[in-house]
Design a protein around this nucleic acid. Structure first.
Lengths: 163, 163
DNA sequence: GGCCACTCATTGCATCTGCAACGAATTCTA
DNA sequence: TAGAATTCGTTGCAGATGCAATGAGTGGCC
C-alpha cells in the first residue's frame, strides 16, 4: 500500500506514448527495410506524393516536423536522388521540392507495406471502434487546443474530414 | 487527383504518433518546470514510488525504457540526490535503486500536476469513451503481439487490469 | 570444483535531436 | 524608396539516442 497511488501503466499519456512508439517502430521497419528511410524522410515523401512543388515550411506544417528535421530530411533525400530541390520561382526564400521519378518509384514501393501495417492494426477493430478512436483522438487534441501550455496543433494534426 | 491516394493525416500510425507526442510534450512541460526531469527520469521516479529496491532491469520492463536510457536516467537522478543506488545485496550483478527523501518530495510535488494533465485530457471524454479508448489501445497492442515483425511488449505496455 | 553460457549494468561511438542563431529574401511602413 | 520587421531555410552545437561491445557476476552441467 503506497502513500499516493499512481500506476504508470494506467496513465493515459504513458499508454499513448508506448503504443505510438510501438506502432511507429513497426512501421519504420517497413520503410527502413525498403530504402533505409527515416520517419522524417518517409513523411516528406508521402507529402510530396500528393502535392508537388512544396516548400520546407509546407512540410513542417503538414508532416509535423520541425524546420531542421524537414530540412535535413530533404537534404538526405536529395543526396539519394529521391527528391529534387530548386530555388523558389516566385519567392526567392522558398525552395521548390518535388519527387524525382526514382523517388516516386520508391514511395510507391513502400506504400503497400505501410498500408498493410495499418490494415493489420485496423483489422483488430470493428468499424465503429475505428470511428470512435478517431473521434476520441480528435477530442483529446481539442482538449490540448484549449490548454495554453500545450503546443499548438499543426495543420497535419487535424483530422482528415474537418473542412 | 493523384495516382495513388494516401493521406498522412488520416494514417493511423501517424495520427497516434502526433497525438502521443503532443501529449508527451505537454506533460514534460510539467516535470521539467518542477525539477528539470526528462521523460526517462520521470518514469523512473514514478516506478520507484510504488516499488522500492528496484534494479535497472525492472525499470526497463516496467517503464518501457531501454537499458542505456534507464541506466543514464538513474545516474543523473543519483547525481541530483533524488535516488540512491546500492550494490545488490543478494545478486551482485543487480543494483538496488530507491528513492531518497528528497526524491520522494520531488515526485510528490510533480504528481498532482501530472494527474491534472491527464484529468484535463480525460475530461474531454465521457466515461464510456475512456473505457473504449483503453480497450481499443489494448486491441491494437494485441494485433502487434501477433505480428512477428513487431517488437514484443514489455510488462508495462500491458493494461492495468489484466491479471 | 571448473568451465561455459547467461544475465546485469555500463560505456563508446556514431548518429540524431532540438533549440537558437544566422544570412538571405521579402513585406510592411512611413 | 529606405529602413525596420518578418519569413524562410540552413547550420552550429550541446545534449540525447540506439546499438553493440564490454566487464562483472551468477548459475548450470559434468
Amino acid at each position: 500500500m503506497t502513500h499516493q497511488a499512481f500506476d504508470l501503466s494506467s496513465f493515459l499519456p504513458y499508454r499513448l506514448a508506448v503504443l505510438a512508439e510501438r506502432v511507429s517502430r513497426r512501421l519504420a521497419a517497413e520503410y527502413q527495410a525498403l530504402h533505409g528511410l527515416s520517419i522524417a524522410e518517409w513523411r516528406v515523401m508521402v507529402h510530396l506524393l500528393h502535392s508537388d512543388e512544396v516548400s520546407i515550411r509546407d512540410i513542417c506544417d503538414y508532416a509535423n516536423l520541425d524546420k531542421p528535421k524537414a530540412s535535413r530530411a530533404v537534404k538526405r533525400l536529395e543526396k539519394d536522388g529521391l527528391v529534387e530541390k530548386r530555388s523558389g520561382a516566385k519567392d526567392g526564400r522558398l525552395v521548390a521540392i518535388s519527387l524525382t521519378n526514382a523517388g516516386r518509384r520508391v514511395i510507391y514501393e513502400i506504400l503497400p507495406a505501410a498500408k498493410a501495417v495499418e490494415a493489420n492494426l485496423l483489422g483488430a477493430l470493428q468499424l465503429e471502434e475505428q470511428r470512435a478512436l478517431a473521434r476520441t483522438m480528435e477530442k483529446l487534441h481539442s482538449a490540448l487546443d484549449l490548454d495554453p501550455a500545450a503546443k499548438p496543433r499543426t495543420l497535419a494534426s487535424q483530422g482528415p474530414k474537418t473542412p
